[in-house]
Design a protein around this nucleic acid. Structure first.
Length: 355
DNA sequence: TATGCGTGGGG
DNA sequence: TCCCCAAGCAT
């Protein structure tokens, strides 16, 4: 107890545990600040196990700031395919280009400057500064808020953005100036492995310091208000093939949902008209035939797509905004998961039809 | 400041 | 099946 009065004892217990128990992760095997940066962006709202293969491939494809800076955006998006939150990687490339052009390829080593880079917010700034450069700065993520809310019995709602600064101030009080990298990572590692939503306090290296454990309230913390239910959007999608065996696709707008990713024609269902009528009306293309292909639900964080996909044939040319692509070309385009679901089903169907 | 932005894993 | 989440940021 009395965490602040026993600061150095707390740091020691936390960091000793971390150095002994930390997971062997790819980005913990490097001191390259660019690699640390890439890993932190990938890890935003994304699980470690999901990130690992993406990180390995990304670093192999773009081994340096310069490589990523000169890469084509479509190649960069392709490496991010399936990882989600696609504007992260567009912002990362913008930030990297800025470092190359304005900072002589040296990532800024203070919060004020590094925070100006695209995609670098309060957490990522602190994480890169502390882990890559040993700067004693806070890096407060969901893990850290959960851990500290229990250690110090902080009952402020962590779902409210402005409350994050409460935790940032606590970290700046507690942080080990000698090893801020280990200190910050230890808090996160503890949250990821021990001080989880269902905490495993018997394994905790700092439970003696924990006010919530002392009062048996660890299960009740952190306080986090619930989100409201999301809206369902019914969509009809069309995989349209022309007489040359090419597929009709378009690129989504460069902002908003699934920015810059490629997709088949899709129409939000409003009335009760037949799918082919809807397609003709909305996109202006006539179909020779149409068959059901696949139905599925895709759940985003803030909405749900209820997709009904059809396989259709046409003799028409591509409408404005659309182009036809060969199967090989479609494979190469960056596509989000719902589109991949349709494309995978399509390839299965084609194979069976041939056989 | 509140909301939009993905995906897949686990209880 | 449903709900919660997981190393947040931009606008």
């Amino acid at each position: 107890m009395q965490l602040f009065e026993r600061k150095s004892e707390f740091r020691s217990a936390l960091i000793t545990w971390y150095l002994r128990e930390k997971r062997d992760l790819p980005w913990r095997r490097t001191d390259n600040p660019y690699y640390i940066w890439v890993s932190e962006v990938m890890l935003q709202q994304t699980r470690v196990d999901t990130v690992i293969p993406y990180y390995e491939r990304f670093i192999e494809k773009f081994p340096s700031l310069a490589d990523l800076a000169v890469a084509k955006e479509e190649d960069v998006l392709k490496m991010w395919e399936g990882l989600g939150y696609y504007s992260r990687v567009k912002n990362l490339q913008s930030g990297v280009r800025e470092v190359v052009e304005k900072y002589g390829s040296e990532i800024p080593k203070n919060r004020k400057e590094i925070s100006k880079l695209k995609g670098v917010g309060p957490y990522t700034a602190g994480a890169v500064l502390s882990i890559a450069f040993g700067v004693p700065e806070h890096a407060v993520d969901g893990n850290v808020m959960r851990v500290l809310s229990r250690l110090l019995l902080i009952e402020d709602d962590i779902a409210i953005p402005r409350n994050r600064k409460i935790f940032e101030e606590v970290v700046m009080e507690l942080i080990d100036e000698k090893d801020p990298s280990s200190f910050n990572q230890a808090l996160m590692e503890l949250g990821a492995t021990i001080c989880t939503p269902k905490p495993r306090c018997l394994l905790c290296p700092v439970r003696d310091f924990c006010h919530a454990f002392h009062e048996g309230r660890q299960e009740k913390l952190p306080v986090k208000s619930k989100k409201t239910k999301v809206k369902t959007i019914p969509l009809t999608a069309f995989a349209v093939r022309n007489s040359e065996g090419k597929w009709l696709m378009k690129q989504r707008p460069s902002t908003g949902l699934l920015a810059d990713m490629w997709e088949f024609p899709m129409i939000e269902i409003t009335g009760t008209a037949k799918p082919e009528e809807i397609l003709k009306l909305n996109i202006g293309i006539k179909l020779k035939s149409i068959d059901p292909l696949i139905q599925f639900k895709h759940v985003f964080s803030h909405l749900i797509w209820e997709v009904e996909a059809y396989l259709a044939l046409t003799k028409d040319g591509a409408p404005v905004g659309y182009s036809f692509f060969s199967a090989t070309e479609v494979d190469a385009l960056p596509k989000a998961v719902p589109v991949l679901k349709i494309w995978d089903q399509l390839k299965k169907t084609e194979k069976n039809t041939k056989g």
